[in-house]
Design a protein around this nucleic acid. Structure first.
Lengths: 257, 257
DNA sequence: AGCCCCAACTGGCTTGAGCCACTTACTGGC
DNA sequence: GCCAGTAAGTGGCTCAAGCCAGTTGGGGCT
């Protein structure tokens, strides 16, 4: 009960986790290697298997290790990030005729794949309606839901929202939107992308997201709510990106105004 | 064993978690309210207390609920975000004489506090050395470590790295850096901030970060590796921001170039 | 040689029990 | 009226045991 220091004895599970963390940090158990089995840890630390198990769970929650049923618990290898840069909207890239994602993938030597899940007229979520400047009580938008893959690994889930009055009857309602993708078609409609506004947050995935993205425990997602503004600073497109955070990062390079 | 659908019976803990998630989503248990006790859940679902407990843990891991020792488990209230905008470096804000964080806090009606933990000459981490353009094998930088609070709630941890050859003997080595903070002093040295590059990722906190930021289980952190470039596009400052993701978001608004 | 099956290992999940620490509300004494 | 003490309720943590479900490798059969 000496308040000068906190020798408050840690729970056994945390002590075991701490020791394993040390071994991993010090390279005694290198990345990709297997931890001792739960039963072995229990014996080594003189604890019940459940307690050793709890320790492993703590490490998994932090994203340090990952368990393979029937095989063992492995130290997770640091992943190199698939990077999404703020220049992905750049005019300069238009000449390639590729959509932003395909361009980024190609740049990083990955094979891109995009699954179009559905394209439907909908009533927009509140935050989207606000940003797109449409009413939220009616079917004022078209919602395009896509899944993105790099080398067949799921990378992000994207929901794109467009004004129904603009998209109606155009290629924007089709899976294949033609040259330069939806931004090409929106330009045809007179919207030149002049500014973008990205609102970024992070959170743990919902069970559905975890399933889609094949997320292991302890991996959060990055959520980007993106708004495109045209030459009149009018918003004409809103997208919600959900990235797996263990394999993706964001890069923003911008002038100080 | 019918492969047409996945009726693979869920583990009991997951079924219970699913049901609780539904009750929360449908508003049967509103935000801020208490869940049934672990013992009550166990009885209701005909499971052992440990199983009910596991279900609650799943929800906590996802950041949906939070347990208060001795009181109960509560549905977490959605937090409004303390927002960090890309215009926080803007020249326009210079006239206020406030540092970026103080300005943001004031804008959002919060009381800012900054604790300067230490200011020391150090050998830089590899990623910092790369971006700042200094050697990583020697004590080539000054490291300023700060903790930021809004209304006395910890908000972010910031490590700022400056070139030792520039900072040596200046106010940059002092806790109080004068008007406009370190950016003011760096301007005195001839570095006008012209562009910034922010690299953003998300991950689960280390135990130390969780302690500092008072993070509940299931809350990730946002990490921003920030580089300031001057009028010659030379990097002159690198900072690593670690934000708690449940109360902070990032806003980037930029021109499409 | 090739294949199959089974034993032995791994983690996944649950049970029921017990003790501890923290919180709250009530109750009784002053 | 106030306050201290206490009982009852909560989550925190651990134990010992058991069964299930993937994985792996070796032994034996064909």
């Amino acid at each position: 009960m000496n308040p000068s220091e906190p020798p408050t004895q840690q729970p056994a599970s945390r002590r075991i986790a701490e020791e394993l963390r040390r071994r991993i940090r010090d390279g005694e158990i290198p990345a990709g290697e297997k931890l001792p089995s739960e039963r072995a840890l229990a014996e080594e630390f003189g604890a019940a298997r459940n307690t050793a198990r709890e320790a492993v769970r703590l490490l998994a929650e932090q994203g340090l290790v990952t368990a393979k049923h029937g095989r063992g618990v492995f130290v997770r290898e640091p992943q190199k990030l698939f990077r999404f840069g703020s220049d992905r909207y750049s005019i300069k890239n238009r000449e390639t005729g590729l959509t932003p994602f395909r361009l980024e993938a190609q740049r990083q030597g990955k094979v891109p794949r995009i699954d179009v899940l559905y394209i439907e007229r909908e009533t927009p979520p509140l935050d989207v309606a606000e940003r797109l400047g449409v009413p939220s009580g009616e079917q004022s938008v078209v919602h395009r839901e896509n899944h993105y893959f790099a080398d067949d690994e799921p990378v992000q889930i994207v929901s794109t929202y467009l004004r129904w009055d603009e998209a109606q009857g155009t290629l924007l309602m089709q899976p294949k939107t033609g040259k330069d993708g939806i931004y090409g078609r929106l330009e045809d409609l007179g919207h030149v992308m002049t500014r973008v506004r990205d609102e970024i947050s992070a959170r743990m995935p919902t069970p559905e997201e975890a399933r889609f993205l094949q997320l292991l425990p302890g991996v959060p997602v990055l959520e980007v709510l993106h708004t495109s503004l045209d030459q009149d600073l009018q918003p004409f497109e809103v997208s919600r990106y959900v990235h797996r955070a263990d394999q993706t990062g964001l890069l923003y390079e911008l002038p100080v105004e």
